[in-house]
Amino acid sequence: MAKVTITDIAKMVGVSKATVSYYLNGNTSKMSLVTQEKIRQVIEETGYQPNKIAQSLATQDTKTIGVVIADITNPFISSVMKGIHDQCQEEGYSVLFTNSDNNPEIEAENIHRLLQQNVSGILLDPIDANLPNLKQLDPQKTVMVDRESKDMFLDTVVSNNSDSTREFLAQMKAQGYRDLYFVTYPIEGISTREQRYQGFCEEVGSDPARLLVLGEPGTNEQILDLLAAAKRGLGFFTMNGPVLLEFMKLINGTPYQYPSDFGLGSYEDLDWMQVLNPSISCVRQDSYRIGRVSTHHLLGKLQGEEQPEQARRLVVPSELVLRKSF
Results as ranks from 00 to 15, higher is better:
K3A: 03
D8I: 08
D8V: 02
A10P: 05
K11V: 05
M12D: 07
V15C: 15
A18L: 06
T19W: 11
T19F: 08
Y23C: 02
G26E: 08
K30S: 12
Q36G: 15
Q36W: 06
R40K: 15
V42T: 03
G47E: 01
Q49D: 03
Q49E: 06
P50A: 05
Q55N: 14
K63F: 09
T64H: 04
I72V: 10
F76V: 09
F76M: 07
F76T: 07
S78L: 11
Q89F: 15
E91A: 12
Y93I: 03
V95L: 01
F97W: 09
N102E: 15
N103P: 06
I111M: 09
H112Y: 14
L114S: 02
L115P: 01
L115T: 11
S120E: 09
A129M: 05
N130C: 04
P132F: 03
L134E: 05
K135M: 08
V143C: 01
R147T: 06
L154I: 05
L154R: 00
T156H: 03
N160S: 08
D163L: 13
D163W: 04
S164Y: 11
T165W: 00
E167G: 00
A170D: 05
A174T: 08
Q175W: 07
Q175F: 12
V183N: 00
V183F: 10
E188S: 11
E188F: 10
E194A: 06
R196F: 04
S206D: 15
R210E: 08
L211F: 10
L212S: 04
P217Y: 12
P217D: 12
T219G: 09
T219S: 07
L224N: 03
L226Q: 09
A230N: 15
R232D: 11
R232N: 13
G235F: 11
G235N: 09
F236D: 00
F236K: 01
F237N: 00
F237W: 04
N240I: 03
N240D: 14
G241F: 01
L244M: 10
L245F: 13
L245Q: 14
M248E: 10
M248S: 07
P255R: 01
Y256F: 15
Y256W: 15
Y256A: 05
Y256I: 07
G265E: 00
S266D: 05
W272F: 15
M273S: 13
L276N: 00
L276Y: 06
S279V: 00
I280F: 04
C282R: 07
R289P: 05
T295D: 00
H296P: 00
H297P: 02
H297V: 02
L299Y: 09
G300K: 05
Q303V: 07
G304D: 09
Q310N: 12
Q310A: 14
A311D: 05
A311W: 11
V315L: 08
V316H: 14
S318R: 02
E319K: 15
